[in-house]
């Protein structure tokens, strides 16, 4: 790789809101996120935390209206996405960055054969005849484990796992440097999920692709990611590599996520759910967004947003429980 001065992705201080009739939904609030070349970042959070909005904003695909980017910068490979023309943006989409959408059942066109759908992406970005594009599309299908001859079939002739592989083949068709995978296996059964994850790992190594893995499943993060950002109410509240976040969990919300999962090795262990619900994104609290649900909340948590505390060079947390002196040793119960 050339000098790694730029990251594959750098999002700085991004805020996105949706201006709706029933109020302003603050979807992202000063979100920071970066992915180095060739690395995979897991973005973990619950429904409504802003995971998909983050993915869409990287492609500048936030529906507008009602979506508005109110502040912040987005860099893809050092290039400022927000100042690009629509034409420049189009040449980037599918070529430098591609997205795998959550639901393979609805992200394919039901009246087009799968090879035509994949060839469409290729024709947009590469020279060559239609037949070249079709041939390339069939190669892509083979790559994801579908016989190329089945390319002239329609999506309804494939099972859910195969449709998801078609979507992955389409995303990888132009060999993107960055892949955004939005819950790519949520709609699949576990044994099929295992196949798809294994395949994605292989392809990532082969092409040295950087990846943003959007998921709610910490098990998948442990499986495939290098780093993880925990997102809550549109803001990253804890970030680190896997050892940092899984074994030196700092934020009470991250702790709560782990405690909510049934432990497969200890079936007697009691589930400790996080009390309450996500705050209303049209009316976020003044202080820490998690304060109402937090068992450790102090007065200051309700009044002031916590600053970032670094535990080491890779791991930070935004929580009033920690300061530079205690971050090393302070442990909350798990």
């Amino acid at each position: 790789m050339s000098a790694n001065t730029t990251n594959a992705v750098d999002i700085k201080n991004l805020s996105v809101e949706f201006r709706t009739d029933s109020g302003i939904v603050k979807a992202l609030n000063n979100l920071d996120l970066s992915i180095a070349h060739g690395r995979t970042l897991g973005l973990v959070g619950e429904t409504g935390a802003g995971k998909t909005t983050t993915g869409l904003s990287l492609l500048r695909l936030i529906p507008s209206p009602p979506g508005v980017i109110t502040s912040g910068e987005i860099f893809l490979d050092g290039k400022d996405v927000l100042t690009m023309s629509e034409k420049e943006m189009q040449s980037l989409r599918g070529k430098y960055v591609a997205m795998i959408f959550q639901d393979p059942m609805t992200s394919l066109d039901p009246v087009m054969t799968v090879e035509d759908q994949i060839a469409e992406v290729i024709a947009l970005h590469e020279e060559g005849t239609h037949q070249d594009a079709i041939n390339h599309a069939r190669e892509m299908l083979e790559l994801v484990g579908i016989p190329g001859a089945r390319g002239n079939e329609y999506p309804h002739q494939f099972s859910g796992g195969m449709k998801q592989r078609v979507v992955i083949a389409m995303a990888l068709a132009c060999n993107p440097k960055l892949l955004i995978a939005d819950e790519p296996t949520t709609a699949l059964d576990v044994t099929i999920q295992a196949q798809v994850l294994e395949m994605m790992k292989g392809l990532r190594e082969k092409y040295d692709t950087s990846m943003l893995m959007i998921t709610h499943d910490l098990g998948i993060v442990a499986e495939i990611c290098d780093e993880v950002s925990i997102i809550y109410a549109g803001h990253v509240i804890e970030h680190g590599n896997l050892v940092d976040v899984f074994e030196n969990t700092k934020h009470p919300y991250t702790e709560g996520l782990f405690n909510s999962l049934p432990n497969i090795e200890d079936r007697q262990a009691e589930l400790k759910p996080i009390k309450g619900l996500m705050p209303d994104p049209t009316n976020l609290p003044e202080g820490c967004a998690f304060c109402d649900r937090c068992d450790y909340a102090k007065d200051i948590c309700f009044k002031q947003k916590p600053a970032r505390t670094w535990r080491n060079e890779t791991h930070y947390v935004e929580c009033h429980l920690y300061n530079e002196k205690n971050i090393g040793e302070k442990v909350i119960g798990r």
């Binding site: 999920q193 295992a194 098990g219 442990a222 896997l242 050892v243 899984f246 074994e247």
Partner: peptide
């Protein structure tokens, strides 16, 4: 089936 469960552990 059991081996395919992603486990949130390192």
């Amino acid at each position: 089936l059991l081996s395919a469960i992603p486990i949130p552990q390192l």
